[in-house]
Write a protein that binds this DNA or RNA. Sequence first.
DNA 1: ATTACTAGCTGTCGAGTAA
DNA 2: TTTACTCGACAGCTAGTAA
Lengths: 235, 235
Amino acid sequence: MAPRYRQLRPYLLCTLVQLLDLGAGVGPVRVSTTELASVMGVSQQSASRHLRLLEGMGMVSRRVEAEGSLISISAEGLGVLGEVCGVLRRGLEDSAVEELSFEGTVFSGMYQGAYYLSQGDYLEQIREKLGFEPYLGTLNIRIREGDLERRRSLDRMPSVRIEGFRGQAREFGGGRCYPVVVNGEVEGALVVADRTSYDLSVMEIIAPVSLRERFGLRDGDTVRVMISGPRRSSS
Amino acid sequence: MAPRYRQLRPYLLCTLVQLLDLGAGVGPVRVSTTELASVMGVSQQSASRHLRLLEGMGMVSRRVEAEGSLISISAEGLGVLGEVCGVLRRGLEDSAVEELSFEGTVFSGMYQGAYYLSQGDYLEQIREKLGFEPYLGTLNIRIREGDLERRRSLDRMPSVRIEGFRGQAREFGGGRCYPVVVNGEVEGALVVADRTSYDLSVMEIIAPVSLRERFGLRDGDTVRVMISGPRRSSS
DNA sequence: ATTACTAGCTGTCGAGTAA
DNA sequence: TTTACTCGACAGCTAGTAA
């Protein structure tokens, strides 16, 4: 129940991972403390201390020489790393959420979507980062109360960041865009402004075409947006 | 070149891993700071601080409620963890050393092997941890000069620890035993005392039988010891 | 060029406690 | 019960420097 990797303080575990990345898992590797320090972004003294501590715990073995140290991770150390690897693999496997979709009802916003979109370099950013030229307007939908919980899973979906900027008179905030497919046909993006006036049950969608026209939508009609999950994280 | 996981201080990375282990990778999970603190072996205050920091960096998102917080790791966070996972997988894959074997020449030690073995609970420890009743004596071999480098790889081999103890008059040190196969036939163990008078070119071997008798060995004869590598570390 | 000591600074930790 | 504040203690950090 008590994982072995807790034996190591966090910073030592990170050093061990770095050593593995440097190849100290396969066999003795020549690494100087200066070198290790620079790749880890710490001082040479810290790298040196970490190595001494890891050696003292039997996690690595090394031979100190003039041109640097010969370092290899011990079976003990590999065991610890293997354990962490296991935790990560299991945890990340489960997180391969394929799809997340919401159903919502269309409602009229304050018709400010077009205004905002045309400000500054929003359009350019969308073109570049999302790969389409957005129709000047947003579709507002309100999702079911019961879907609020699932909406939070959005955080784990891939998104692209749209930067805010300072205009003449006021500031325009940034936000995140999640690529979505609307009604299974049109590719667009869900826009979540960093600071929005709407509550969490509201979603704003942009697309290359007018979604209202495309699907003949009126207020109260239902649309389905589908967000694709994160590509499997590995290698 | 600069890995994304360096964005996080080591202790935050560890907290993130723990959250993944608690299931925050798949979706919102109810975890109180007290709970997180106890599984991590830190104070509630630290757990709370870590969560706030991770949230501030966009690695996790959460909703604080009376009965604990709903926590889920963001896409950003999963990305970071995925990166670490990749490093570990690649590094550990390569480390699947299958076998390590040494050839050495037999020489006579100071015939103290039997004496040491019969002290305290050495015999009992060996019986329990190695699974055989050792012949009262050790076979000493000296490996080739050129194999000294490879000998260091021993650290990465699985071993069992034999604890030292304090006798009446003096102290008896601990050491490590590596299961080996001698001349491809007899299973025994290589003994590496924590503090030994021999240099690195010397190996001491114990086995359930007298190896000298079994193979008709005399000083200067050659034997081969084979150490099996660490079982693949995964899941 | 190394590694590693000492000294002093900083940031993390956890007890106490508020909300 | 929660979460999170303040603040004193100290672990870990870095600079300087020795070997």
